[in-house]
Computed example of a mutant assay.
Amino acid sequence: MQRLQVGLLGLGAMILSIGVATVVTDRAQQTDDAAVPEAVQTVAESDGKKNDPLADAGVVPDLPKKADESPVPDGPVLPEAGDAAPSPTAP
């Protein structure tokens, strides 16, 4: 008897979920049909100048006009020596 109840409950849940999915797809189709085919732009096109609101607000730091010619130093880049004892090397 319990198996029959569980089976019928599962069947009812599946039918309910299919019904909900059908309602959702029908509503989405209605909304799609009611939409304007070619909507007008809501944002005005820029006049060619770059718009940087952070720079306008003064939040961005001043960058040099010319980048350093050699930002990477010559030779190997080694870490700074700390106060720790040197690590033992392999013989």
Rank of each mutant, 00 (worst) to 15 (best):
P76R: 04
V40A: 13
D47Q: 11
A67Q: 12
G82Y: 03
V24N: 06
V43K: 01
T89W: 07
A44V: 08
D62A: 06
V72F: 13
L16W: 14
D62G: 05
D83C: 06
G19L: 14
G19T: 08
D52Y: 04
M1F: 09
P91H: 01
L54M: 07
P76E: 06
Q30D: 12
A35Y: 08
M14I: 15
V23G: 03
D33L: 09
V77K: 10
A34E: 15
L63H: 04
K65L: 00
V36Q: 03
G12E: 11
V24K: 03
A85M: 14
A13F: 01
A57M: 02
D33P: 02
P88S: 14
E80A: 04
P64A: 15
D68N: 04
S70N: 13
V43A: 02
L11C: 15
P73A: 07
E45H: 06
L4F: 03
Q41E: 14
L9G: 11
P37S: 03
D26W: 09
V24M: 11
T89P: 05
D83Q: 08
V60H: 02
S46K: 05
K66V: 07
P88T: 06
E38I: 07
S46L: 13
P71T: 07
D68C: 05
L16Q: 12
A81C: 05
D68E: 12
D32P: 00
E38T: 11
E80H: 06
V6L: 12
L54V: 00
D68H: 02
G7S: 14
A28R: 11
G10I: 07
P61N: 00
D74G: 11
L54G: 03
A44R: 09
A44H: 03
P64D: 13
P79H: 00
L78V: 15
A34H: 04
L16C: 15
A85K: 15
P86M: 07
T25N: 10
D33H: 06
P91S: 11
V36D: 02
P64T: 09
G19I: 07
G48P: 01
S46W: 00
P61I: 02
K65H: 00
Q2P: 04
G10D: 12
G82S: 13
R27Y: 07
E38P: 01
L54D: 09
L8Q: 12
P76M: 06
A85C: 08
L9S: 14
P37T: 06
D74E: 05
T22Y: 02
L8C: 13
V36N: 03
V59H: 07
A55D: 12
A55H: 02
K65M: 01
L63R: 14
L63I: 04
V77M: 14
G75D: 10
A39L: 08
G7N: 12
T25C: 08
L54P: 00
G58H: 02
M14E: 01
I15E: 04
K49A: 15
P91T: 04
V24Q: 08
D74L: 01
M1D: 08
E45D: 14
A67N: 10
A39S: 12
G48I: 01
Q41T: 13
T31E: 15
A35V: 01
T25E: 12
L11Y: 10
D68W: 01
S17W: 12
E69A: 13
D56Y: 03
D26Y: 10
V20D: 02
G82D: 10
A13M: 04
K49E: 05
L4I: 07
G10A: 14
S46D: 15
Q5K: 10
E69M: 06
A35T: 03
